[in-house]
Amino acid sequence: MSGGAYRLLPHTADLLVEVRAPDFPSLCARSAEAVFSLLTDRRRVRRSERRSLDFASEPPEELLLSVLRGSLLLFSLDRFLVREADANMEGGGLALAVAGEPMDAGRHSICREIKAVTAHALSVKDGPSGFVARFVLDV
C-alpha cells in the first residue's frame, strides 16, 4: 500500500490504481484522495477551503468515473489541491465534499501530470471485506 489507502498495480505505461474501502461512498472519497496523492504530497495541502461536487445516480462504475473526473478537474481547471475527501449517498446520487487549497508553487510540488481518468479496466467490486476499485490514470 502507498499512503495507506491505495496501491499501484503493474501497468506498462500508465498508472493502474487499486483502492479499498468499507463502503461505496468511502471508496469514492478514497479514490479521489488517491488521485491527489499521485499528483502531490497531500500532507502539505492545507484544509483551508471546502468544495462540494454532486453526481447524479449512475451504476457504481459510472459514478466512480464521474467522481474521479470531477476531482481531477478541480486541479486541471482551478489548480485546486485536495487534502481530504468525504462522500455520502444523497437521493440516489453522490455528494462529494473536499477540503484543500489552491496550489501554491512555493509550498506544493506537483509530481506528475495526470492527463485523464480512463474507463479502460475500470472496475468496482463488492466483496466480503468491502469494496475494491481499480482504474487507470493516463500519465
Partner: peptide
C-alpha cells in the same frame, strides 16, 4: 515503447 512500469 515502454517495457517497464513506472513503479518498477
Amino acid at each position: 515503447g515502454r517495457r517497464m512500469s513506472r513503479t518498477a
